[in-house]
Structures are given as C-alpha cells and as structure tokens.
Amino acid sequence: MDIGPINVSHPLAYKGSGGVNFGYPEGYTLMDMVPDDVKPLIHPHWSKFPPVNPMWHYLLGVIFIILGILSFFGNGMVIYLFSCKKSLRSPANMFVVNLAFSDFMMMGSQFPMYVWNCFNGGYWALGALSCQIHAFTGAIFGLGSLTTLAAIGYDRYCVIVKAFDGGHISSTKAFFIILLCWAYATAISIWPFFGWNSYIPEGILTSCSFDYISRDWGTRSFGLFLFIMCYCFPLTIIIFVYSQIVGAIRAHEKALREQAKKMNVENLRSNADANKQSAEVRIAKVAVSNVFLWLLTWTPYAAVVMTGLFGDQDSVTPLVSALPGLIAKTASVYNPMMFAISHPKFRLALQEVWPWFCVHEPKDDDSKSTRTESESGK
C-alpha cells in the first residue's frame, strides 16, 4: 500500500487490511517523515530505520531545555562572579572561567536549534548552512571545554606536584595556554569546511555533527583523527596529571606520618599547612570524580563514532546515535559545580554577591593560608 510521503512527525491513521490503524504503515522509514528539500542533507543510512516515536522528540526537547537553563545559570554565575570579584582573578581561575565560557557558548549554540527541531516536525528544518553552523559551534565549544579540562588538570599538577620546583602558572602563561586550547579546538573543527569529512544531520535528525557513517577512507581517517586527538589524547593527559596529584598527596601524607612517629608527636603541620593539605586533598577528590565523570560523559559518544565507522552500522540506530550526544552535553551542567561553585573562594564570593542564595561558607581568618589558597585556585 503506497500512501506517499507525509511531512509530519506524528503516527498516521491509515486503512490497512484489518481496518483503520493508528501508527506507521509497514515499510515506512525515517526518511518518509522528511521534506524533499531536506533529504539531500541526510545520510542514506538513516533510511533503513522506521520513524522515531514522537514521544522521543518531545522528551529530548524538554530534557534539553532543562539542561540549557541549568547550564546558563551555573556557567553564567561563574562568569559573573569572576568579572565582579577581584579575589577570584587568579591564574587557576582563568581556566575555570574559560571552561564556564566554553560550556555557556556550547549550550547557547546548540539547544535553541535542537529544541526548535524537536518541537517542529522532528527533523532538521533549518537548512544546510544552519546545520554546518550548529555542528561547527558544537564541535569547537565542546573541544574548547575538553582541552580546558586538560589545562585545569595541568595547572593542578603544577600547583601540587611541582610546587617545590616553582611550578605555579602565571597569568601570562595561563592566558597563553587558553589561547592554545582554542587554537587546538579550531584546528580540529574546521576541516569539514575544506572537504575532510562533512557536517550532516545525525541520529533522530534534530542535530548535526561530523559524518561518522560513511565508509570511505577520507571519512574514516578523519574519524580516527578525532578519536585520537579529541578522546585519547585529552584523556591521557587528564589521567596522568590527576594520578600524579593523588600519588604526590599520598606520598606526602605517608612521609608526614612517618616523621611524626619518629618524633613521637601526633601532627607535624601548623594550622596553615593543615588548611593547605585539606585543600589539596579536596582537589584530589574532585579530580578523581572528574576523571570518572569525563569517562561516563564522552565514552558513549566515542563508542558510537567508532562503531559507525568500523563496526556494525545496523546497531547505530537513530536513538543510539542521539542519546550519547545528549549525555555529552550534560558536562556543561556539572562542570561549573565541579570546578567553581564547590570551591571555597567561589562560594565566599557567591555568599557576598547573592546572600539570599543560602550559601554559608566560613571565612578563613588565618592570614598565612591566604596565599596558599589563592595559588590553589580557591
């Protein structure tokens, strides 16, 4: 039975052998839901799958709205506090604010188009140019956040592991590293505009990204390039620096315990040293948590890309490809909480600027610990 293409995202009422049925006719595909002028943008791979239940479009659209609000609120708060409180303008916090800016812009460039498509037909309805802009901005801001996370780890490594070697990063060096992060993100994201890979609609067709479905060598080579440069390389740096941080703290603690035992005293630290160590241990805990969250956030997307390029493509269904991308964007929500709002100096600033926010962070009156906390990015 041929009912012809219909450009709606809702199940259809059609007359079958058993009477009138409500649903999609047998053989109906995802491409049948797309207008003719949009079809050239979409990879033929998605024509093998039936239409996605409209519930998914609405559900994902609502989830994205919630993520967008939380991301704007959290990252906007960090940017505002940094701009109005001089006490937060340390080299370490330059990386934190750069991360907040990148996450803010990433969500700002992604969720309006995504939500619009979710609630207006369930396909990419904004044209080829908007698709490329959507994918490029998502790539550059996503990679900007990834590289900044590695830079934050490196800064923590310098402060804690290389503290006695004069390893603290100056404001000039921090600014240079931030520029390097954005140059790195741009150098990777720009290639599809020059013919190495392309930006196309993906998954349930409400967002755009790199092509990880085509099997030509150009697409595959770019996919390997992305996997190495955007997943393996940053992950290696993050695991190395944070493992060194944890190892240094454990070794320092062990040495202090042994020395205290020899001197028959309970603790060798002064109040300032105790505060410093407490801050460092707190940083290490946050670091380990961040590595774990980073793996949970980006590994599903990396797995989908590698499967699409080299594995069983039949397993890369519209929903399978859509959900990892959404999971990856949750990083813009938890990053400001992990790296800024949970830190004492940001919380003190938050308490001063917005007393009604119900933050009760005790002030440290020990002047000797001020410099240590400042250098630790607190």
Rank of each mutant, 00 (worst) to 15 (best):
I3F: 15
I6P: 02
V8F: 07
P11R: 15
L12V: 11
G16Y: 05
S17E: 11
N21Q: 12
G23E: 01
M31C: 15
P35I: 03
L41N: 06
W46I: 11
W46K: 14
W56Q: 05
G61K: 09
S87I: 03
P91H: 04
V96L: 03
F104D: 00
S109A: 15
G121Y: 09
W124Y: 08
L126G: 01
A128R: 08
Q132M: 13
A135S: 13
A135F: 13
F136I: 09
G138P: 07
A151G: 00
K162A: 13
G166I: 03
S170N: 13
L180G: 10
C181P: 14
T186C: 13
A187M: 13
I188P: 10
W196S: 06
E202F: 02
L205S: 05
T206N: 02
S207V: 10
L224H: 00
I228W: 11
M229L: 07
C230K: 11
C230S: 15
P234A: 02
S243A: 07
Q244V: 02
R250F: 08
R250C: 05
A255P: 09
L256F: 00
Q259P: 03
K261M: 01
N264S: 12
A274H: 10
N275E: 09
K276V: 04
V281G: 03
R282V: 03
F292G: 02
L293V: 10
W294P: 00
T297Q: 05
T297N: 08
Y301T: 08
A303E: 01
V305R: 05
M306H: 03
G308C: 04
D314L: 09
T317A: 03
S321M: 08
P324R: 04
Y334N: 09
N335A: 15
M337S: 12
F339G: 07
S342K: 08
A349G: 14
L350W: 14
S369P: 03
E375A: 09
K378W: 13
